[in-house]
């Protein structure tokens, strides 16, 4: 198995997103590419990543392989890459991950026993969909966070608003007013869902500007799915379970 990226931004974004949920990550490499799927320890959020072979400068995988890494250690190595540096990974016979950063930095990192289980994906319908720039979404989360720990998303016909309510006050952000930065709003059914900023904020910051656009899909009191559109990567899906009336 051998994979070489062109540039380091995508891998940094992926590792950073995963680091918001887990300390140890198991990746699966097949001839098709590299995948990761995992939940945070409290099973509130799930990340599903599929990175196709076509997105790599060089990719070779003769037989399926699982490899586990400590995310903080892997992240430290990846961060030594400049934006344009390629990162090449392969696995040695001694169960070490060989990481070549740029032209001349050759790291060896100990792999961990992979505790991978087959995590399914939530099976849910998505009634509503909002596409907007990731920087706009990041600002909205900041706007809501000053009064609340939770973001409420509400769609009605083809209108949407984000809101938050806390002890000190509340805020409503009407998306119709800044249509320039909103790509698309659609709803098959009026939907309202409330989601924890404790999980949303870190992942949106982690993927940051690497994702130009994001798509939020949800239904009333059902998980939110955010798709981050990162140029070279097939799929980064972040699922977040809702706050519900109990």
């Amino acid at each position: 198995f051998e994979a070489k990226t062109s540039g380091s931004d995508d891998l940094k974004a992926i590792i950073s997103a995963i680091s918001t949920l887990v300390e140890e990550a198991t990746f699966v490499a097949t001839a098709e590419g590299i995948t990761f799927r995992g939940m945070d320890p409290s099973h509130v959020a799930l990340i599903d990543i599929s990175w196709p072979n076509s997105a790599f400068e060089k990719y070779e995988c003769d037989s399926d392989i699982k490899f586990g890494v400590r995310i903080d250690e892997f992240s430290k190595l990846i961060k030594r890459a400049d934006k344009k540096d390629s990162i090449e990974i392969s696995i040695s016979e001694q169960n070490m991950l060989l990481v070549t950063v740029g032209k001349n930095k050759k790291y060896k990192m100990r792999l961990i026993e992979s505790s991978a289980t087959d995590t399914p994906l939530p099976k849910i319908p998505y009634d509503s969909k909002i596409t907007l720039s990731s920087s706009r979404f990041d600002k909205i989360l900041g706007d809501v966070q000053v009064v609340s720990d939770y973001l409420t998303i509400h769609t009605s016909d083809s209108k949407a608003d984000f809101s938050g309510k806390g002890d000190s006050g509340e805020v409503v952000i009407d998306l119709e007013k800044d249509i320039d930065e909103i790509g698309e709003i659609s709803s098959k059914e009026d939907s309202i869902g409330t989601y924890s900023l404790e999980y949303l904020n870190p992942v949106v910051k982690a993927v940051g500007t690497t994702a130009g656009q994001i798509t939020c899909e949800f239904s009333s009191a059902k998980p939110l799915r955010i798709e981050f559109k990162v140029a070279n990567i097939g799929r980064i899906h972040f699922y977040l379970a809702p706050r519900v009336e109990s």
Binding site: S42, P122, S196, V244
Partner: peptide, 11 residues
């Protein structure tokens, strides 16, 4: 009362 649900409830 509001509570945090688990993603596994939706598998």
């Amino acid at each position: 009362i509001r509570g945090q649900s688990s993603i596994t409830n939706y598998f």
